[in-house]
Design a protein around this nucleic acid. Structure first.
Lengths: 297, 297
DNA sequence: ATAGTGCGCGTACGATGTATGCGCACTACC
DNA sequence: GGTAGTGCGCATACATCGTACGCGCACTAT
């Protein structure tokens, strides 16, 4: 332990034990030099350490005082300098851009220019892009409150799943954004998980949790298919149907070369599958819920 | 239509009608100047247009000849210049990096430096990053061939799902990479889809397709949870369990503030859920398959 | 009046994917 | 055997990204 750490520790002790109370003055630099027999630089460093910990603060003309530095008086801004921006506005713009052009088009510079503001100004409100995305997720989820869930457990968790689906549908980027965000909580998602857990009280506890995660994973999985499709269509201007017909040749040769009997059969007698992800989602959801019912019985 | 376009069109007509056959000489620049009454520059431009279309090529000392330019003889490289790189090597290195550090760490420069090669040299073999990723996906899938599926339809599609799961487990990046790739086919994935379709021959055709997509979406959904967890652990060095305990305070206040009875109840009497994604995957798969069975009956 | 302070944001850095175009080794002709 | 020409392989350079850094200015406190 260096000398300045020793001094800092001693003063820290006096403060935490109450020997020095908030408002009291700690020994001045010069007093420390005298009492501990150290150089000025060392004494200064010790006090700086405590300042960095916000245990003490310098009070001009008085000395170094115990207690955190007083919050600087809120600067009164002249009317023309009132910040016309706030966090919600940034988050809203982020959502608007991601909705219109996908997460890939979302950049700090883009948001800033869209808001008529300098890029770095955003960092006054959102900390960084990752944090912004988490806030976007939270805000997007909040657009779809749950209402009161039905009594029937099956109806209840179906409702939550459908609400999620609606959110993913409205905000196509949501499915990929929500995964990137474990280190951050999404507060307004908690009511959803709570609703599912409540509905599944009849199940064993670990089964209830597994059910919930599986269900959410499924919904997000289908939502990602939807997102990929939308993104590809936007990038290339080609819909899924068109793409299939375009790629028919390549697919044809692959089928011919590989050993894909079921595929060939499927394409043989008129491939007219209606590619409707809403229906697909409901189908898988039904199957899953049927499975759960069987299990509960 | 400009003059040179007129001339080019006329020559093009003579070639496509067979009036001029491959090997024949088209009129020289000077002949065109004489016959069409245009300037040298115009005649030259007309011939250049056709050259760009690879309909004709200049043959030194002969004139401009119908037919595509002869493929340059394959340059015989001296032994010390034999390219020591090939596409598979690039793809393999891409997979190695993504396995070890995630898709985010995958960059063209990184691959190149890891291979001891200049960055742009990679573009001789892989076209671009997107294409590379698709090839990585294909290669990763190919590591898990299907074997012969059981007769029982349920066992058969469970097997395919488990093979997918194994692939996702081995290559954590696979779950996010596989979605980005609609415009490209993943050839060696087709046998998997074919196996599922074959197993579901008993179902109505559209139901079979919906089942397949739902199932794959589910598997990938769970795999993405796994990937996010692994990535977060690598980035922050904090496991999921540790994170939960770390965030307990924040979660606690959220629970206290919000109205989350089931959550509170869950945490109240000892939260000891075993967070095992393999088991979770099997659980959800079972539920889904149970649902399908019920539906088939 | 003047010294000091901290806020807001402009500048700049280190990444990224990849288009562009240059030098050079080689081929094909006189 | 010299030489013109060609195309391959890759170094350089550009546009984009997120954001660290630190400067100037407007304000507060003396």
């Amino acid at each position: 332990m260096t000398q300045y750490e020793t001094i800092a520790a001693e003063l820290r002790r006096r403060i935490t034990t109450g020997e020095l109370k908030p408002g009291d003055r700690v020994p001045s630099t010069r007093a420390l030099v005298r009492d501990f027999g150290v150089a000025m630089a060392t004494a200064t460093k010790a006090l700086q350490t405590l300042q960095a910990e916000r245990l003490v603060h310098p009070s001009p003309g008085v000395g170094t005082v115990v207690g955190p530095p007083p919050r600087a008086a809120r600067r009164t801004l002249r009317p023309d300098q009132q910040p016309e921006l706030n966090r919600d506005e940034v988050v809203r713009m982020g959502i608007a851009i991601a909705d219109a052009e996908g997460l890939a088009a979302l950049s700090m510079r883009r948001i800033a220019s869209e808001l008529g503001v300098s890029t770095m100004a955003l960092y006054r409100y959102v900390g960084g892009k990752d944090v912004l995305v988490v806030r976007m997720v939270d805000a997007a989820i909040a657009e779809f409150p749950l209402g009161t869930p039905p009594d029937d457990w099956r109806e209840a968790i179906a409702m939550v799943a459908r609400v999620h689906w609606a959110a993913y549908r409205r905000h196509l980027w949501l499915a990929s954004a929500i995964s990137l965000s474990r280190p951050q909580l999404v507060p307004r998602l908690l009511p959803h998980t709570d609703a599912v857990l409540r509905a599944l009280r009849g199940f064993e506890k670990s089964a209830a949790l597994s059910t919930m995660i599986s269900l959410f994973a499924y919904v997000r999985g289908v939502a990602l298919v939807m997102e990929a499709e939308a993104q590809a269509e936007q990038d290339t201007g080609v819909t899924a149907d068109e793409w299939v017909t375009e790629q028919a040749d390549k697919l044809g040769t692959m089928i011919a070369m590989g050993d894909l009997p079921a595929f060939r059969e499927l394409l043989a007698d008129g491939f007219d599958y209606e590619y409707d992800l809403d229906k697909l989602f409901e189908f898988g959801l039904d199957v899953f819920l049927d499975g759960l019912s069987a299990r509960l019985r």
